[in-house]
Amino acid sequence: MKQTIFCTLFYLLSLGFFSCQPKQEEDKTVEVPEEIKSNLTVNTSFFGTLPSGDTATLFTIKNQDNMEVKITNYGGIITSVLVPDKDGKMEDVVLGYDNLEGYLKSSPYFGAIVGRYGNRIANGKFMLDGKEYPLAVNNGKNHLHGGLVGFDKVIWETEIEKKENSVALKMKYLSKDMEEGYPGNLNVEVIYTIDNENAIAIDYIATTDKTTHVNLTNHTYFNLTGDVKRDILDHSLMLKADHYLPVDEGLIPTGELRNVEGTPFNFKDFQKIGEEINASNEQIKLGGGYDHCWVFNRQTPNDLEILGELKEPTSGRVMQLFTTEPAVQFYTGNFLDGKITGKMDKVYNQRFALCLETQHFPDSPNHPDFPSTVLKPGEKYESSTVYKFSVEKEVGN
Results as ranks from 00 to 15, higher is better:
K2Q: 01
Q3E: 14
T8Q: 00
L9F: 09
Y11F: 11
Y11Q: 10
L13N: 14
L13T: 14
S14G: 15
Q24R: 04
P33Y: 07
E35D: 14
I36A: 10
L40K: 06
V42P: 01
F47C: 11
G48W: 02
L50Y: 00
P51E: 01
P51N: 00
S52D: 13
G53F: 01
I61H: 00
V69T: 09
I71V: 14
N73I: 06
G75N: 00
K86V: 09
G96V: 11
G96P: 15
Y97C: 08
D98E: 15
L100T: 09
Y103A: 10
S106R: 09
S106A: 10
S106E: 14
S107L: 08
F110P: 04
V114R: 08
G115C: 12
R116N: 05
Y117Q: 10
G124K: 12
G124C: 01
F126N: 09
M127L: 08
E132C: 14
P134G: 12
L135A: 08
N138K: 02
K141R: 03
G147E: 09
K162N: 02
K170T: 03
K170Y: 02
K172H: 07
L174C: 00
S175H: 07
N185Y: 06
N187K: 03
I191F: 08
N196F: 11
I200C: 08
A201F: 03
D203C: 02
Y204W: 09
A206K: 05
T208E: 08
T212C: 00
N215Y: 03
T217S: 10
N218W: 01
H219M: 11
T220P: 06
F222H: 03
G226E: 09
V228L: 05
D234N: 13
H235F: 06
L237D: 07
M238D: 08
K240W: 12
E249M: 13
G250F: 08
G250D: 15
R258K: 13
F265V: 13
N266H: 04
K268T: 15
K268N: 03
I273T: 04
N281M: 06
E282S: 07
G287E: 13
H292F: 14
W294A: 14
Q299M: 10
N302D: 15
N302A: 10
L304N: 03
T314Q: 10
A327Q: 05
F330W: 03
D337K: 00
M344R: 10
Y348F: 12
N349L: 02
F352P: 13
L354S: 12
C355E: 11
E357Q: 10
T358Q: 05
P368I: 03
D369I: 01
F370D: 07
F370G: 03
E379Q: 04
E382H: 11
T385Y: 02
T385P: 05
T385V: 15
F389R: 12
F389K: 14
S390N: 03
V391Q: 01
K393P: 01
